[in-house]
Simulated assay, not measured.
Amino acid sequence: ENGRSPDIVSAYSFNTGITLATEACQEKSNEIKAVPILLDKIDIAGKVVTADAMSMQKDIVEKIRKKGGDFLIELKANQPSLRYGVEDRLAGHTPVYSYSEDPVLAHGRIETRTYRIYDGLDIIADKEKWGGNMTVIEYESSTVKKSTGAYTSEKRLYVSSMPTHTPKPGIFVRNHWSIESMHWGLDYNLQQDNIKRKSTR
């Protein structure tokens, strides 16, 4: 329509490797509007929906809760009051539990991943906006480059509707990363980022 190549949002099943449904973003719209429509196409009851930070929106979180699913979404600066409020309050709280995974050697680097799980009750200020309490997951990666010994670290924050006693929620974090890595494949192999979004005619 109008010679336009729209962005398409997909619901992908990590366990089966199958795309369950898709929704094209309408002209002058975006992923935020497309995700709730996409969620109406699939049964997520009893399932965990992972999504990137753009999906940390009231309507999307509400839709997942109402359909009986759980979510795990990364916190970034698109929700600044939530992100930085959580970051500031974590310093005064003790995690419900924490654990580290065995070091992984890949791409010439040794990486150790640590997860700290917090009850969001006293950490998240505007719980009502998000439909109730959430669990906060702090992920920390410590990496040593094998050839030089150079050390780097990185922290990320996630929020989830899953209870704090969920065993090893880092599994869901890693599963989502494996899906995000497909974006690299699309760009590297198919040069997706170079596709013109508007017709040149």
Results as ranks from 00 to 15, higher is better:
Lys47Glu: 03
Asp7Glu: 12
Lys28His: 08
Cys25Ala: 09
Met54Asn: 12
Val86Ile: 15
Asp7Gln: 11
Ala45Tyr: 11
Arg65Glu: 02
Lys47Arg: 03
Asp59Gln: 11
Asp59Pro: 10
Gln26Glu: 13
Gln57Asp: 01
Lys63Gln: 15
Glu27Tyr: 10
Glu74Phe: 06
Ala51Ile: 12
Ala24Lys: 14
Asn15Met: 15
Asn2Gln: 13
Leu75Asn: 09
Val61Asp: 07
Pro80Met: 00
Leu72Ala: 10
Tyr84Cys: 06
Asn30Ile: 04
Met56Phe: 09
Lys67Pro: 09
Val9Pro: 10
Glu27His: 07
Lys76Tyr: 00
Asp59Thr: 13
Val48Tyr: 02
Ile64Asn: 01
Ser13Asp: 11
Arg4Asp: 09
Ser13Cys: 15
Lys33Asn: 10
Pro6His: 05
Lys47Val: 00
Ile42Arg: 01
Lys58Cys: 04
Val9Cys: 15
Ile42Ser: 02
Lys67Trp: 05
Asn2Gly: 09
Gly68Asp: 03
Val48Ile: 07
Met56His: 03
Gly3Pro: 06
Val86Trp: 12
Gly69Glu: 02
Glu74Met: 14
Pro6Glu: 08
Thr50Phe: 01
Thr50Pro: 02
Asp59Tyr: 00
Lys28Leu: 08
Lys63Leu: 05
Gly85Asp: 05
Ser5Arg: 15
Tyr12Pro: 02
Tyr12Met: 01
Lys67Thr: 14
Val9Thr: 14
Ile32Gly: 07
Gln79Trp: 05
Tyr84Phe: 14
Gln79Val: 08
Lys28Val: 04
Asn30Ala: 12
Pro6Ala: 07
Lys33His: 10
Ala24Gly: 10
Leu20Thr: 02
Lys63Tyr: 14
Phe71Arg: 06
Ala53Ser: 11
Arg83Ser: 14
Gly68Trp: 01
Asn30Trp: 09
Gly3Gln: 04
Cys25Leu: 04
Leu72Tyr: 08
Pro80Gln: 02
Thr16Gln: 13
Gly85Phe: 08
Ala21Leu: 03
Asp88Arg: 06
Asp59Ala: 13
Asp59Asn: 11
Ile18Tyr: 07
Ile8Lys: 07
Gln57Tyr: 00
Ile64Asp: 00
Glu27Trp: 04
Met54Thr: 10
Arg83Val: 01
Leu82Ala: 04
Ala34Lys: 06
Ala21Tyr: 04
Tyr12Asp: 04
Glu31Asp: 14
Gln26Asn: 09
Arg4Met: 11
Asn2Phe: 00
Ser55Cys: 14
Lys67Phe: 00
Ala21Lys: 04
Glu74Gly: 14
Gly69Gln: 05
Gln79Ala: 07
Ala24Leu: 08
Phe71Met: 08
Val86Glu: 10
Ala53Glu: 06
Phe14Val: 14
Lys67His: 11
Thr50Val: 01
Lys47Pro: 00
Leu39Ser: 03
Val9Asn: 11
Ser13Met: 09
Asn15Gly: 12
Gly3Glu: 06
Ala21Thr: 02
Asp7Thr: 13
Thr19Glu: 10
Ile18Pro: 02
Ser13Glu: 08
Gly69Arg: 02
Thr19Ser: 14
Leu82Gly: 04
Val48Gly: 01
Lys33Pro: 10
Lys63Met: 11
Thr22Gln: 15
Ile37Val: 13
Gly46Thr: 01
Leu82Glu: 02
Ala11Gln: 06
Ala77Thr: 15
Asp40Pro: 12
Glu27Ser: 12
Val35Cys: 05
Tyr84Ala: 06
Glu87Leu: 11
Tyr12Gln: 00
Ala77Phe: 12
Ala51Lys: 10
Lys58Asn: 08
Val9Tyr: 08
Lys28Asn: 08
Lys76Phe: 06
Arg4Val: 11
Val9Met: 12
Met54Phe: 13
Glu31Leu: 08
